[in-house]
Design a protein around this nucleic acid. Structure first.
Lengths: 127, 127
DNA sequence: ATCGTATTCAACCGAACGGTTTCAGACGGG
DNA sequence: CCCGTCTGAAACCGTTCGGTTGAATACGAT
């Protein structure tokens, strides 16, 4: 739940290669070598990417002889959708409230409601 | 839809301040000054953050005299959930298939199925 | 024991990032 | 008209990031 951890997850997905790696891992676990194959970067670079994903909790590693297959940790999906849905709903609700308010208003003076939370110095402020 | 644009959205949310700004914008539009108030960084820094969010399509700006209120572009939520749900489902499906396959197997030889997509050189490889 | 493969560690490099300070422009209120 | 406020642009700074090369480690196969 820490909002800081969430931004780390987003950071982990903020790189096109990493994003694609996650997409492919949804299809099944894969080793570093396998993961590196489609991209024209070194396998060391992919290893680093994997470490980032691991650090964000997006991926976990196991062991199979020399290989260290990466496994998608699907719970992060829930964390993300949790955050997203929360604020999507919040935005929707706000919109609905504002909408019905405007609809029920006697015509003009709509500007006054355009920015409700603003500390705009409409009338006197630092008395 | 371009996978590249998605990673830019995630990049926009990869900073704790930006993430918080989005959360607050779900509550209503706000000016740079208002947005900057909670954090102990300069308003110029927040202006930069806003430009990043805008560049990713997360936020749009309007105009109100000197003020340029930021508005949350809620459609990005759909883009994100679209991607997330797709791969969550994919991972779940794979898990279910693997599960039923294991369940229906005559006991041993489970290792052989542990990494189906692997090009692992089990037997002879470079003949 | 040795060779080959898979992975990581370490040092390094240029570019991007987040931040600041300073300055300039736009606009409204008195 | 002019002052204060809000915002953006520019130059700069230290750190992080994505990438490389090169060497080290770990393990299986032969």
């Amino acid at each position: 739940m820490p909002a800081d951890a969430l931004s780390r997850v987003f950071a982990a997905l903020s790189d096109p290669i990493r994003l694609d790696m996650v997409a492919r891992l949804a299809d099944g676990d894969a080793t570093v070598k396998e993961l590196a194959e489609p991209y024209d970067v070194t396998v060391q670079a992919v290893s680093k990417h994997l470490r980032v994903l691991e650090g964000a909790g997006v991926v976990s590693r196991s062991r199979d002889a020399q290989r260290r297959p990466a496994h998608l940790e699907a719970q992060v999906f829930d964390v993300m959708t949790g955050w997203i849905e929360r604020y999507r709903r919040q935005a929707e609700d706000r919109y609905r409230r504002l909408d019905s308010l405007l609809r029920s208003m006697p015509d003009d003076e709509e500007q006054a409601v355009a920015a409700p939370a603003a500390d705009r110095p409409r009338k006197e402020e630092t008395p």
